[in-house]
Design a protein around this nucleic acid. Structure first.
Lengths: 172, 172
DNA sequence: CAGAGTTAGTTGAACTCTCACTTGTTGAGA
DNA sequence: TCTCAACAAGTGAGAGTTCAACTAACTCTG
């Protein structure tokens, strides 16, 4: 631990620029969605996932995985979306522990209403700025990072995403 | 508004990959800092900015700008850091509206204690995964985006960052 | 210099997210 | 079959962020 691999000048500047770019960009995305559709980006993504699946229905845990959310977050989010009438919860037939989240017609309509503004924001903030070569490079880099981080994430996943029972056993 | 410039297949996949990569990466950064140092990444950045400036002191609004935070966020964050004894607030001489935020010795020590783990996480999550060419490309892309988004952000800045008085005047 | 408008910073409410804990269910092995 | 670890999901407290409203100080301009 004593010999930290510090960042050199180039890495330092790359890191800061990357951080600044992503903050500026995602803050803008978040604000656009919030203001025009009253929806956090995370909620929008949940709706997208549901809309893309046959039956517009997914188990809570699958929804959590595909939206890169914790189960707890999905519970809270779906509860909120259910209040809005955009998602409906149903019991799971074969596993009584399970719950199914289904996108309602209202939810689909809401998503379709929100989509144009959101897509426009993504285009303006990202693709309008980058050359085709940069877009290709960005995709390559992102794919590399996703592969890298899916295997061994920067930091062990939250206790919430299961495994805490094991940890308890091991530790106590 | 009716002719949305939808994303084509390549853009769609680039966008999703980019989103996934940044989420995975920054979630990891956040978790590492929180667990090892009990600090949100935003707070860490505040400490870094203060540590880099002569006198380890910055006006609240300058701090807000360089940390890409709203004034309100900075107010809350500095209040929290002050409670911890890591930052001290002082009055500003020449502008009685102003407040100066100063990094204390404890704050500097805390930052120095947090740094190695954080830097290691950045390296493991980002630079260990990418080739030198990819790092160069990432820097180029990020610089491009920062320049683009600083000029015309995806979405108008929050009311908090001033200008709402003007808006009120124009609208009313 | 008076008043209008602007700027610096704070505050509180509302909301989301995380973490740790709890409930109820499933399934494998003694 | 009984038992207990593993799993699915929900819950509530605590923390951070945002937004709008507010106070106070500054600065123009007539």
């Amino acid at each position: 631990m004593s010999d930290t691999r510090w960042l050199d000048e180039n890495e330092q500047q790359t890191w800061r620029s990357f951080m600044t770019a992503t903050r500026l960009f995602f803050d803008g995305i978040e604000r656009q969605l919030q203001q025009e559709s009253g929806l956090p980006h995370a909620y929008y993504e949940i709706l997208v996932r549901l809309s893309e699946v046959p039956g517009r229905t997914l188990r809570m845990s699958e929804l959590a995985e595909t939206s890169l959310s914790s189960r707890s977050r999905i519970s809270h989010s779906v509860a909120r979306l259910e209040e809005m009438g955009w998602v409906r919860r149903r019991r799971c037939e074969h596993d009584k522990r399970g719950q199914l989240a289904e996108l309602t017609d209202e939810g689909l309509a809401g998503l379709q209403a929100a989509a144009p503004g959101h897509v426009e924001a993504v285009r303006r903030g990202l693709f309008d700025a980058l050359s085709p070569e940069q877009v290709a490079a960005l995709r390559d880099i992102s794919d590399t990072l996703v592969a890298h981080l899916s295997d061994k994430p920067v930091w062990p996943a939250a206790a919430d995403r299961s495994g805490e029972a094991t940890a308890r056993k091991v530790n106590g």
